[in-house]
Write a protein that binds this DNA or RNA. Structure first.
Length: 410
DNA sequence: TCTGGGGTCCTAGGACCC
DNA sequence: TCTGGGGTCCTAGGACCC
């Protein structure tokens, strides 16, 4: 395989920076973006807040403890999705091979475009300058022969960094790099490797592959390659991406609940969110999963059930979810509920065959249409929730601005 | 008022069929 | 009397990512 030139772009403190741009009073100050619910965490902290110890995933009270003057902003995903889409459009001017990895990260395969734009550094500087001028936002860029190394490189200098790993640098960079720095090796995997006396990528790359395969199974080979800085995976633009395999929503409730009728209300809301997203993208699914987290945070219950036929009507999903609920023991009040539809089938807008089915389908589509125009839960089943519980605004960096993974509500 | 929400992939074990 | 093996589908749970 001939050498490739891959660029990874990572927006710095994306949600927080977008908010600071939208509101000049927030610039230069410690702020953090949080979710809208009663029980939420820090989604993104500005660099000013990070300096004081505020981190993603922290409870709000914890963030306030390290930084009493912090300004908390409830996230607005329309802003982030809009900005992200504009940045992706900009990136597509340099190559059609843009893989949107998350709302604030993307890979570009520049191999074929360097004839037009010159060096990859030049593309990086152009992108950085344009993103800064247009949106007032900073990003870190990594350039390397593959995605694994490009992502590693973009992480090396933050914020506003530009790091290049050339083919001749790879073995030097990997030699003393801790294995946990690689995307794909998390805390548990790192601990297992350390127990095998493998601490650095250099050691991982030299490790006997049978030893790795014995311990880690099918990914043993892949691990050794990662240690050597090898990665053949292509940059996959949206059209080339695998089909989405599941659609789900979950919510942590404002308060723990125990009464069945309360649980059912939230369950119906979740099934409506899942069903509507599935219908919007023309998928239905045969497997419905219900998951519950109990009041103690650590314990939970859940089950999945595969139906005879694929469904995407909220009521069908709801019926399956309730059937599962009725098989579960609930030893504690419920903190969090989740519903997922998987085993997906892509039907591409086919209408059901039988008249009564079709009528139901048409009614649901009409409801969806109203909700799409006027906001979630404008028209909905009678038993849905009071105004203050409407359409919990999901804030998650894992969104994509396009396609079914756009979880944007409203 | 302690601890969010969206996904993917892999493993292991059981049921069932040929 | 005892004991097969491959394949598929399904479920539960864990690790990892942003």
């Amino acid at each position: 395989m001939s050498p490739r030139t891959i660029l990874h772009l990572d927006m710095n403190a994306f949600f927080a920076s977008v908010e600071q741009q939208a509101n000049p009073e927030l610039r230069g100050r410690p702020i953090a973006v949080i979710g809208s619910g009663g029980r939420t965490v820090i989604t993104t902290a500005s660099y000013e807040a990070r300096k004081l110890g505020v981190k993603t995933g922290m409870a709000v009270w914890e963030a306030k403890r390290c930084c009493p003057e912090i300004t908390l902003v409830v996230g607005d995903n329309r802003k982030y999705t809009w900005t992200s889409s504009r940045i992706v459009e900009m990136m597509k001017e340099y190559t059609p091979l843009v893989e949107v990895f998350s709302i604030d990260e993307a890979f570009l395969d520049l191999t074929a475009s360097l004839g037009i734009f010159g060096t990859p550094e030049r593309v990086a500087y152009l992108l950085k300058a344009r993103i800064r001028h247009t949106f007032g936002l900073l990003c870190s860029i990594g350039i390397a022969p593959n995605k694994l190394l490009a992502k590693l490189a973009s992480d090396m200098h933050k914020p506003d960094g530009l790091t290049i790993i050339r083919p001749e640098d790879v073995s030097r960079v990997m030699e003393h790099l801790p294995v946990g720095e690689l995307c794909g090796i998390g805390r548990k995997m790192e601990r297992h490797l350390n127990l095998m006396s493998i601490y650095t990528c250099g050691e991982l790359g030299r490790c006997d592959v049978t030893r790795l395969s014995k311990k880690f199974g099918i990914i043993g080979t892949r691990l050794k390659e990662m240690g050597q800085g090898l990665d053949n995976s292509p940059v996959a633009p949206l059209e080339a991406e695998d089909e989405v395999k599941s659609v789900g929503h979950s919510m942590t409730l404002r308060q723990d609940i125990s009464r069945r009728e309360d649980i059912l209300k939230y369950l119906l809301q979740l099934c409506e969110m899942v069903g509507r997203r599935a219908r919007r993208y023309g998928v239905s699914g045969r497997t419905v999963t219900l998951h519950i987290r109990f009041a103690d945070f650590y314990s939970g219950a859940g089950r999945q059930e595969t139906l005879k036929r694929a469904v995407n009507l909220s009521n069908d999903i709801y019926r399956a979810a309730v059937a599962i609920l009725d098989t579960l023991e609930l030893p504690q009040p419920v903190r969090q509920l989740g519903v997922k539809l998987s085993n997906l089938e892509y039907q591409g807008g086919q209408l059901p065959l039988f008249p009564d089915e079709r009528k139901k389908h048409e009614m649901v589509c009409a409801m969806d249409e109203v909700n799409n125009r006027f906001g979630d839960f404008t028209v909905t089943f009678g038993s849905l929730l009071a105004a203050e519980e409407k359409g919990s605004r999901v804030i998650s960096p894992a969104w994509r601005p396009e396609g079914i993974r756009n979880v944007q509500v409203l």
